[in-house]
Design a protein around this nucleic acid. Structure first.
Lengths: 113, 113
DNA sequence: GTATCATATGAACAGAGATTCATATGAACG
DNA sequence: CGTTCATATGAATCTCTGTTCATATGATAC
């Protein structure tokens, strides 16, 4: 049931300036990609240099399969790219947005305490 | 079991430049806050003006309880603040980092397609 | 061509997290 | 002061997501 006091005016102005539901969902999905420790670590590792799957697995001390699954998610989202090199698949950051988004979060953390 | 080819050199250099586990976890936790549609919508709504709980609930067409739970999470993370106003609790963005983080994600979305 | 190495994939499992329902809290207004 | 309104909280449920285990795929080297 609705509440007694009125705020329909405030609601109307906010609604009118709110992006579409779809865009807001996409935004949530994007941040969800950064909202996992393993994926953050993978992305951060690729800051330095491109790496093959088993190097990342060894680096993070995790199973190759777990890394592969996460890399697939990151690749589907086009946050990382992939190329062949001999027998290995080498992954790399797809673009610099990844860097700036992570840096932004980093800054927030280090500033607030 | 470890793989046959060697990449210990690459691993060493990457490890040496990787932030601490704790920081990387905090970073993941921060992005996790933005990785939910409801929370994104709440935060975005507060871009315009401060709002009371039931206004947000009505605005997003969700139960008051659900909004309250999410606001608690956002408040604990200090992304939003809260003050009394008559009978209502009014919530507002805690600082401008929230805005810039969301904008950054927004930009990534609108640029890539 | 066949064995081997690196990675990908699928199903199963476990844990985290979001919503709902019912109810508690607590200030404000009369 | 007691009632009412606005919000907070707790437990339960359900969904979503990450990891593991086992195995498939697929290129490469021999």
């Amino acid at each position: 049931m609705p509440h007694k006091h009125d705020h329909s005016e405030a609601i109307r102005t906010v609604v009118s300036q709110l992006p579409s539901d779809e865009l807001l969902c996409d935004l949530g999905d994007l941040f969800k990609l950064f909202g996992d420790t393993t994926r953050i670590k993978i992305l951060y590792s690729l800051f330095e240099s491109e790496l093959c799957v088993c190097a990342i697995a060894e680096l993070l001390k995790m199973e190759q399969s777990a890394i592969s699954h996460q890399l697939k998610i990151l690749k589907d989202a086009k946050l990382v790219g992939c190329r062949r090199s001999g027998r290995m698949n080498v992954y790399f950051l797809a673009d610099d947005h990844v860097r700036s988004i992570i840096y932004q979060g980093f800054e927030h953390l280090t500033e607030n305490e």
